[in-house]
Design a protein around this nucleic acid. Structure first.
Length: 486
RNA sequence: GGCUCCAUGGUCAAGCGGUUAAGACACCACCCCUUCACGGUGGUAACGCGGGUUCGAUUCCCGCUGGAGUCACCA
């Protein structure tokens, strides 16, 4: 007997940006399906028209595409269970709500809206049943005919307990008297998430519900809804949240104050989509008995096992992300690196250099994220009036006298080098000759030349590499400029 | 506050009754060396506390403490 095909979905609401936590939910949802040869569906949950942001759908489509999370059904590609946008499915929900009312599992409620402010701290009290729960049929009919605004609430069973099994957290049981008569249909006729996702998951054949663990405590409500609707219960996977480290040492749900948190922000900073996916996959999951940390999406599909999802939340570590990103950069071919680096480089370096290939070559192992390229190549653009005292260094055995001599000799020697020979090894020989003829250590010569050319003590590349990149004339100009300033 | 969940180094994270308690990031030192980076070697650093169960607990149970989530006509 064949097992039923696994179907998962990712169901974001189009509110603007793609939070990294949402992306990880999408990733795990994708992996749970694909690692078992299943299907992955995208559905847009836009039942809150007030929060809708123009163009947000496109952000979701683009992010999933760039991240490589291909869905088998979705708003922009269609499928047998469409439409995949909840606002277009309004009638469907109404039909099911009506069914529930008829079977006595839901009721009209004409009460005033409670409050718009989400967390009225002091108002947190034990749930009670709504007064409208017991309204007689005549009153309801009268109110309806008067056109009084209403919502439809679920009539939960408040006796006993409700239980479900979660594949990450195990058995979850709650006392039913902690449950609310949640709203199914809002006064504008739109369903709430609570209702819509249950209907859609059933209708779309979703077998495995994968979502953040902020839903663990509300899931019992949905379990009752399934029962009252006569729907089979899906498999549940609630994922640990991704947290951010606060300045005061505490932690809380990852948000903007922790740094870049949207996929687009991270990409703009110069993180590679593959690296981001790789890193967030590791936030809450790791293959058992393995040390591997670098995974392509294809590899993840192969090795992913939902049993290895951890229960505790993980703190997002930008350092580690950087490292993962650097691993991907290191693996790039020179051409690939160049293509990615070029836009960042062009931002800072606008003048022509003699050997741009060499520049890319020395940059690749030194760049962790592309946005740091600018600061690293700034000195190639222009030599600033640096503090010449940095030329003198006891460890390198340089002082005002020998520095002047080294610079003078360097200019002399280097101006004799043919343009065809303007290349690292030959340049190194030329500088070495100065050391040999003067008795200074090679490192003293290299130190002086490198700083005279760059104006800084820490540079990408050594003295001769910098010369090779700058070219002969610029090298000589810079050495002379620095010499003149001594 | 009620409810639900969680708890191994600063962070990620192996471990699933007996281990010198892996590995990675970060940090430090050394090596390589024309600085930096890459690479290599090594180092600092952890089982929250208290009770049980057991010959033996990081591992199982209970309590405590700490943390998180949730209690919307948001999802």
């Amino acid at each position: 007997m064949d097992k039923k095909q696994v179907v998962t979905r990712y169901a974001p609401s189009p509110t603007g940006m793609m939070h990294i936590g949402n992306l990880r939910t999408a990733l795990y949802s994708y992996l749970i399906a694909k690692s078992q040869g299943g299907k992955f569906i995208l559905r847009l949950e836009d039942t809150d028209q007030a929060r809708h942001v123009e163009g947000a759908e496109q952000v979701i489509f683009d992010t999933l595409r760039v991240a490589g999370l291909k869905y088998d059904e979705g708003p922009d590609i269609g499928g047998p269970h469409g439409p995949y946008i909840q606002s277009e499915r309004k009638e469907i929900y109404l039909k099911y709500a009506d069914m529930l009312i008829k079977s006595g599992k839901a009721y009209y409620c004409f009460c005033e809206k409670k409050s718009d402010t989400p967390h009225d701290e002091e108002q947190i009290i034990a749930p009670t049943t709504d007064p409208c729960r017991e309204l007689d049929a005549d009153t309801v009919a009268k109110n309806l005919s008067l056109g009084k605004p209403f919502v439809i609430r679920h009539k939960v069973n408040r006796e006993g307990t409700t239980h479900y099994y979660d594949h990450v957290y195990g058995d979850i049981t709650v006392q039913n008297d902690t449950l609310h008569d949640i709203i199914l249909i809002k006064s504008d006729g739109m369903p709430t998430y609570n209702f819509a996702h249950v209907i859609d998951d059933y209708l779309m054949g979703v077998t495995h519900v994968v979502r953040g663990n902020e839903y663990v405590t509300s899931t019992p409500q949905y379990v009752q809804l399934h029962k009252d609707l006569g729907f089979p219960l899906p498999e549940y996977y609630h994922l640990p949240l991704i947290m951010g480290q606060n300045a005061d040492g505490g932690v809380s749900k990852l948000s903007k104050r922790h740094g870049a948190v949207s996929f687009a922000d991270l990409v703009a900073l110069g993180y590679l989509p593959e690296a981001i996916i790789n890193y967030i996959a590791l936030l809450g999951w790791h293959p058992a008995q393995s040390d591997q940390e670098i995974f392509s999406l294809q590899e993840l599909v192969k090795v992913f096992d939902a049993n290895d999802i951890r229960k505790s939340s993980a703190i997002f570590d930008y350092n580690k992300l950087k490292w993962v990103n650097s691993q991907y950069i290191l693996k790039m071919t020179p051409q690939e690196f160049r293509e990615h680096a070029e836009p960042y480089l062009a931002n800072t370096l606008t003048r022509e250099v003699f050997d741009i290939d060499k520049l890319y070559e020395i940059l690749q192992p030194r760049v962790q994220i592309f946005s740091e390229i600018g600061e690293k190549v700034q000195f190639f653009q222009e030599l600033i009036d640096f503090d010449t005292n940095i030329l003198y260094n006891d460890k390198k055995k340089t002082n005002p006298e020998n520095t002047r001599e080294i610079l003078t000799k360097a200019i002399e020697n280097l101006s004799k080098v043919e343009l065809d020979d303007w290349e690292n090894d030959i340049l190194y020989q030329k500088l070495e000759e100065i050391a040999n003829s003067t008795g200074y250590k090679p490192i003293s010569v290299m130190w002086v030349v490198r700083i005279a050319l760059s104006g800084q003590t820490v540079t990408v590349g050594g003295a001769t590499e910098i010369m090779q990149i700058l070219g002969k004339s610029e090298t000589l100009i810079r050495l002379q400029t620095t010499l003149n300033r001594l």
